[in-house]
Design a protein around this nucleic acid. Structure first.
Lengths: 148, 148
DNA sequence: CATATTAGTTAGTTTTGCTAACTAATGATA
DNA sequence: TATCATTAGTTAGCAAAACTAACTAATATG
């Protein structure tokens, strides 16, 4: 391999490694954002619950990529906090459906800005080119994380 | 506010929101990768310790963006596992320097592939995304997490 | 009808983060 | 130089968020 080719070559391992590190650190940052009584996992689950409209517990677990027991406990805490309600399914009595309460909807609205504050600030500070790139970055990350 | 400026703000919020969600999920995915006895935080700390060469505990905490007490405990566990050693600093006796042991170096080599397997596979499958473009996007992600 | 599968829960553990409060060492200054 | 402030790291205690293993209850299948 010529040195020119070598210099230009970006190895997958290299990109993967940096990507992993960057995701880990940014995730730490984002989790530190205080949401006034609502934990990061709760906030995330609340949002996906609202978007899916009466999802089952299993659907929520799959969507959030966590195991069912973890979702059970998460929902238990959220129900206790009055953010969501468990409802029985008519057809299949094994199934637990989750609905966002009025209070949950209010909280959802309240925290939306807070959750995204850190990233918003940084995006706003960027020029047009970087924002464009950020949009492509999101698409890439979504594909990498959502696949199977 | 002009409608153009308004459109921008909406778009930033949208990108921010999707980015946050994508990072959270991808992070969960990456943490699930089994590393045979070494936890994700340990793996990450081991790598940065090797790269910085005899960093102080505080330097490690800053690099990993966690608080000093968390790093103290992490290093304690890693020392117990024989991956690193604490050494005193000659000049300043408050300072604890951390060195990777022979075993730590071996483990580092062993897990490098495993850590990045998930992302590697997916990046390789995306042949329409060229490596340099991906690399630039990762740089942007690094900026989003490391700034300030 | 018996058995297998599926949905969710319970229980217990681990990892990883935090803050508050502490010790020990160093630096600055009156 | 004695005192006070700052810095580095630790200890203790807490909480969130994830896991697996083992369970119950309901449904589907052969």
């Amino acid at each position: 391999m010529t040195s020119a080719a070598n210099a230009h070559q970006v190895s997958d391992l290299d990109v993967a490694s940096r990507l992993r590190t960057a995701v880990t650190r940014l995730n730490r940052r984002l989790r530190q954002q205080s949401l006034g009584g609502i934990s990061p996992a709760q906030a995330s689950t609340l949002a996906i619950t609202a978007r899916l409209e009466n999802p089952t517990l299993g659907e929520l677990a799959r969507a959030e990529q966590i195991q069912p027991p973890t979702m059970t406990r998460l929902i238990a805490g959220m129900e206790e906090a009055g953010l969501v309600e468990r409802c029985a399914d008519d057809r299949d009595r094994r199934i637990v459906r989750v609905a966002v309460t009025q209070k949950g909807r209010g909280e959802l609205k309240r925290i939306r800005t807070m959750k995204n504050e850190y990233l918003m600030t940084r995006l706003e500070a960027m020029d047009e080119v970087d924002r464009e790139a950020a949009s492509r970055l999101v698409t890439l990350l979504e594909r990498l994380g959502d696949e199977r």
